[in-house]
Every structure is written in C-alpha cells, then in structure tokens.
Design a binder for these strands. Structure first.
Lengths: 164, 164
DNA sequence: CGCGATAAGAAATATTATAACAGTACGGTA
DNA sequence: TACCGTACTGTTATAATATTTCTTATCGCG
C-alpha cells in the first residue's frame, strides 16, 4: 500500500480508480491519527471521505448537505469542527479563493501546497513544487519578511478543458 | 509626480508620508479612469481613498462603517459595486484569505501580484516578483495547465514585528 | 465505576456577499 | 435645450459562509 506517500492528485496521470483513492486516503488518515494519538471520529472520518469523493473542492455547506442526505442532519458547527480538525492534522486543505476544501495529497505532512483550479470543470490539482516554494521564500526574504504559511491558488484551464 | 508608476507598498522603504500616498494613488486612479473613459464617481473615489488610508486590508463592511460615519449610510451593494469597479480597473486587489481589499501598487496594470500579510500587525505588502510568477507559470505548465490568474498570499511576520 | 478531557448536538447569531427592482444622473444627439 | 438610452446608485430582501455559546454525550484512563 501507499501508506503516507504522496497521492497523485494531478491532471496528467489520474487514470486511477476513484474508490481506491478514497480508501487509501482514509487508510493514511487512520495511520496519521493513530501515530499522533488523535481521534478520527466517525464524523471526522465521514467528512474526510466526502471530501475525497471527487477532485472537486467542496464547500462546508455542500458537505453538510451530503451528511443530511444520510440521516444525520448536523448543524454547521459540526462540519466546521471536523474541517478544523482535518486542517490541523494536515489531511485537507482550504481553498480560500473558493471557500472550499480538498483532500491533501500528502496526508499529515506539513506545508501548504499550491493549487491549480480549473474554472471550466471545477477540479483542483495540488502541486508541491519546490520551485514555487523557493521563489516565494526568496521574494519574502528580500522584503525582510518571515514566511509562516502561504496560499497559492492558480486558476485557469486544466489539460482536458483547454482543448474543449 | 509619479503618475502611473509603481507605488512602494513594501516594508523596507515606507518612510513616506501617508497622506501623500493616498493623494497620489488617487491621482493615478483619476488618470487611469480618464484614459479609459470610465467614471471614477464620488462613491468609487471615496471607497478607493478609504482603502488607501492604511496599509491594512479592509473588509467591505469596514469600508461601509467608515462611509456610515460620514453621513451617507449606503447599503452593502453600493460598496461591493464600487469594489467590483475598482477591481476591474486594476485599482485594488482582493485578498481572499482575509476577505479584504487593498490598494494596488501599480494602478491600472494587469496582473495579480503577491501579498505579504503580517499576522502580528495586519499590514499587507504587495510584491510583483517575476521570479514567483515564472515559477508558478512553469509549475502550471508542467501539469499542462493554462494559467489565467493567481492568488498568492503569504502570511508571516513583517520586518518590524519579527523583532518585537 | 467515576473522573477529567475531548467531542458532538443544538440554537442563535455574526460576517460576507448577491439578487432584484426602482429611481437618478450622465452623456450624446437633434 | 429637450430627449433618450445607458450607466450608476438606492433600497429591500436574502443567500452563503462561518462562529459563539451552552449543553450533552462519549472516550480514555486510573
């Protein structure tokens, strides 16, 4: 299995089975939480699964709707708390330009990642590009700025949509 | 005057007078709008001034509050419409990680810019770093992605706050 | 079991943003 | 100048996103 390795969430080679993708994301999450002694409770786990169902970023209320269709009808704080936990553990990312959430391609790893957001089909791909990170670090340092975190969200057309 | 040149909004050499800064931003805006045949109406102009009062990003409702304290009490759409205009004309930027707006350092120029956001004092500095832009373009291209726009918001500590 | 800590439920509300429609001011033209 | 069409603003209502607060339940552990 690919425990704790980088999951492919790019555009170029996503010929994988989607169910597998969710399943392995979940395995990683269980492993990460186990190691850290934090609890991947049913709600948190279910929210993570829902987020991993697609490569499309999901809003908190979209997640809420899915949960509601399943019998539970939790209130917003339940979802936001689950998301906060998942963010803290590095299992999901928040895309602030979309107010939406996606699974993290490197569960449990630190670092922010960069995102390619297709405006046509709505998919998101995560990069962890050292070149971009270096350039940012360098640009910040030139201003005497100490970098703690970054948001890099690139919108445009994915390889599939640019042709259509 | 510095008509249409790049305004310094960095941390390193902001020893300028703040009133001048607002005034010259306004001059630039008037020039840009004049050239383009679009109207910098009183509301739009006032919103732009309010945004330029500080290096701190301002939320739409904060702008609304300032306007309310001045006798007008416009409703939210008035402010959002002014902001939309200013965004379209390249006179302000929106920081999506903060849901807030700042003046653009290169009024009227295309391009997204990158932002250094100090979590301690709340100031924002704009970069237009070709190195970062190249790295992003390159990273996107490697995934076959066509870049249309980008959001780069770096949070951390500015030179003043890192010492304190 | 019983205790302390962590998580979830529930209600209300805050914050950010937009839709829809009515009225007003502006700029061009005759 | 009077008219007309467009662009701008006012107003009301509401949507979408997120948080506060307090209560109740569950978990892990001694």
């Amino acid at each position: 299995m690919n425990s704790l390795q980088e999951r492919n969430v790019g555009f170029l080679s996503d010929q994988h089975d989607h169910g597998d993708c969710v399943a392995s994301a979940l395995e990683d999450a269980i492993a990460v939480c186990g190691e850290r002694g934090v609890r991947l409770t049913p709600v948190r786990r279910r929210v993570l699964e829902i987020i991993w169902q697609g490569h499309r970023p999901l809003g908190a209320y979209a997640i809420l709707d899915v949960l509601s269709g399943e019998g539970h009808s939790p209130a917003p704080p339940t979802v936001y708390r689950a998301l906060e936990f998942l963010l803290t553990q590095g299992l999901v990312h928040r895309l602030s330009s979309l107010n939406a959430y996606v699974g993290c391609s490197r569960p449990g790893h630190p670092g922010a990642g960069q995102f390619l957001l297709c405006t046509a089909c709505g998919t998101a791909a995560e990069l962890n590009d050292p070149g971009i990170e270096r350039a940012i670090e360098r640009g910040a340092a030139a201003e005497g700025f100490v970098c703690r975190d970054h948001t890099v969200e690139i919108s445009g057309l994915c390889p599939h949509c640019r042709e259509a």
